[in-house]
Simulated scan of single mutants.
Amino acid sequence: MSRKPSFANLRSHAPAAPAAKPEEDRAARPASREGRKQIAGFFSLEMSLAMHMTARRQGRSLQALMAEAFNDVLKKYGESPIGD
């Protein structure tokens, strides 16, 4: 009985992808992300579902709700809200 070929064998035959230059990487970003920095976190499944459902019911994006929540936290601690 013959064995199926391993995907590991393909690595030696596949051409190496050229490394992206930093300036090319920046150019590939959408204009809407220019001047912005990602903030991420890990939350429970329940929190994720609640936030997505709330965003859907309000007709807003999850990002917009997160910006509102972050601004509320900034106000709570005496900082100026930033906006979006």
Rank of each mutant, 00 (worst) to 15 (best):
S2L: 06
R3A: 15
P5A: 06
S6K: 00
F7N: 14
F7E: 14
N9K: 07
N9H: 05
N9P: 00
L10W: 04
S12E: 08
S12W: 02
A14Q: 05
A16H: 05
A16N: 02
A16T: 05
A17Y: 03
A19P: 01
A19F: 06
A20Y: 04
K21L: 14
K21H: 14
P22T: 00
P22F: 02
P22S: 04
E24Q: 07
R26K: 14
A27D: 04
R36L: 12
K37L: 12
Q38H: 04
G41Q: 04
F43Y: 11
S44H: 01
L45V: 10
L45E: 10
S48A: 14
A50P: 09
A50T: 11
A50S: 13
H52E: 15
M53W: 15
M53C: 15
R57Y: 07
Q58E: 15
Q58V: 09
R60E: 11
A64W: 06
L65Y: 01
L65N: 04
M66V: 12
M66P: 05
A67L: 05
E68S: 13
F70T: 10
F70D: 12
F70E: 13
L74W: 03
L74Q: 00
L74M: 01
K76E: 09
K76F: 07
P81Y: 01
I82K: 10
G83L: 02
